[in-house]
Design a protein around this nucleic acid. Structure first.
Lengths: 186, 186, 186, 186
DNA sequence: GTATAACCGAGACGGTACGTCGGGTCTTTGG
DNA sequence: CCAAAGACCCGACGTACCGTCTCGGTTATAC
């Protein structure tokens, strides 16, 4: 979202008041926190605006919908939480993944849920959230036939998704089990 | 703590007009068909009532919410579609599972989505829909250490869930791949 | 309502269970009391039935609508309260009228109100409630030109209606004033 | 206890989109016209909103109930229809009154009806609609003892109310009759 | 400076669905 | 056939939230 026009280090801003970055951050934070606390469906745009000390229009000026806002709020949060250097072994990767997923669980779940009635959001979710992480996982696995590798990746993310969506824990036992399973497949 | 109707195998209906079974079935069918055709979020309770030739109040008398209704609608539909005898080998089971999941995809997705904002529905979904199918899958797998077996089951259902929720196909290639993967794990 | 078939001292009752007079009276009383206590609009048919210890259908079997029921309930009550012999002088008549109207005020008001959206009830109200009382008043007035007499009657009932509907008292002062006014007109 | 906006003759609109006066007028007009055409009970808030090209919420934002809305709609209509200069003789006043009451009959009746289940509306009706007109009538009558004068006023408005609520005409004959009656009392 | 333009908070707007309520009908069991 | 019970259809209610529009004001560049 907000692809900056490719080459201009700062958007040219040809007159008019510039965007208020403080408002932007306050909105993203408010969206994340509120959805985390009470769940996507319980939160209204008016409430996010009020918490961020902004007006609703300021939100709709920059994000097309509630779901797009929450998706970016999640991305921003993941970015803040990202480790200095990425994991390189599978178990380390999985630990990191499970930790992040557990922390952001309510938001993540809400987004996956919302994406089920919105094909555009679904595509965006895959492109912006999932695909980069699939790529990261790919680097942690030994070489394989491509089809097999993608299947394993699907099984790993699927298992995580299952635990996440059905209230099962993403704990150390889960990590150990999946790691062993993956080890046996490679 | 004694069953009050004293030996009557079914509750005897103690006065008042009995529940109209035809309305019940019409409502469940309408809910399933409409959600399947146009998607959960696009369908209103009023529309389901109209299609079923019933009043909204009749729906709310028996189901507490749209999601509870759609869950029961899905169960009723699955019951109608259930094969005469259950599969016994893993690939046959998976084929059957993928076929059912593909047919009911819009409804299934909606329910998983809705369950993300509703812990009670989530529990009900696990208990009434998932757990029986996990048990069925368990019978198709060779004996294992219990922990490993549950993990494999989670990976299989997770992979299916992933494909289902993210618009990926549950096709023959997927079935072959997962079958091969499971074979290597056993 | 329920014009008794004129000549049969008891309806012929050709087989089947006879009407339960106790239920009829309980319903009329419940209707009157409840409307008197809480007002027409606040009372539901279900509530009247419950208070009367009857079913809703028993009400609808004998009365076509809520307004018809309340009208008959009022008539029954007025009948019970009717004095042994009718007044013959105007002031005595007016005293009696004001007393009855004050006692039954909530019910009377509700009926006049309801009659405003229901032409049939309006006609019935005039025919069954008002016309007999206009006739009674006519007898208390000295002879006049017909047109003048009807106008005076209209002014008297109008003044009472005004006080009744607008929360003004139908007290001794009112009676004295109207009596003096009528005296000057005759 | 000082007017906070310090000399500004009209409230200064302290932020936010100001109330849309066009919507306000459209709603009042729609309410009046619809109630006039089809009757209070047959009209729904949704219908008024649709006819006014507004949303239901916009109505509920500014009026607490259908009856309050219709009362204001009637007042607005009476204001639009008000004659340039008020009548000064009683017969002229009565003609004017009967004409207005006949024109607005369906709306007026509905309001009186509704006021019977709502003490607040009843008070408002008396204060805003009736009291000013009683005062106007007072000026058309020759001096009297106060108690007698109020009684005459009550009888006149009562007679009009009676005709209005019971489907009797407010025609020339009525005006002549009442005028004659009042003449004899003065 | 002053004009212009895009921004900001606030909050009213049109619209859609919600879940509830009550009127009047229908369908049981039982007397 | 009547009575109690209670489910049924229908349709209006008042509320909630979405995403848009419109104010008064603010803060930048452009002239």
């Amino acid at each position: 979202m907000r692809d900056p026009d490719m080459g201009h280090p700062r958007t040219r801003h040809a007159g008019g008041r510039p965007r208020d970055e403080r408002a932007r951050e306050a909105i993203l934070l408010a969206a994340y926190v509120l959805v985390h606390e009470r769940g996507y469906a319980q939160i209204t745009m008016a409430e996010i605006a009020a918490r961020a000390g902004s007006g609703k229009q300021t939100i709709y000026r920059w994000w097309p919908s509630k779901s797009a806002l929450v998706l970016e709020a999640l991305e921003a949060w993941l970015l803040r939480m990202a480790p200095a250097k990425p994991s390189t072994t599978f178990p380390a990767f999985l630990v990191e993944l499970c930790r992040g997923a557990t922390d952001a669980a309510p938001v993540l779940r809400s987004l996956v849920a919302e994406a089920q009635h919105d094909a555009a959001l679904r595509a965006q979710l895959k492109r912006q959230l999932l695909e980069p992480r699939r790529a990261a996982l790919r680097k942690c696995l030994p070489p394989h036939r491509a089809a097999d590798r993608e299947l394993i990746i699907g099984a790993v993310y699927g298992a995580v998704l299952y635990q996440l969506l059905l209230d099962e824990p993403l704990d150390a036992a889960f990590v150990r089990g999946v790691s062993r399973m993956v080890a046996r497949l490679t």
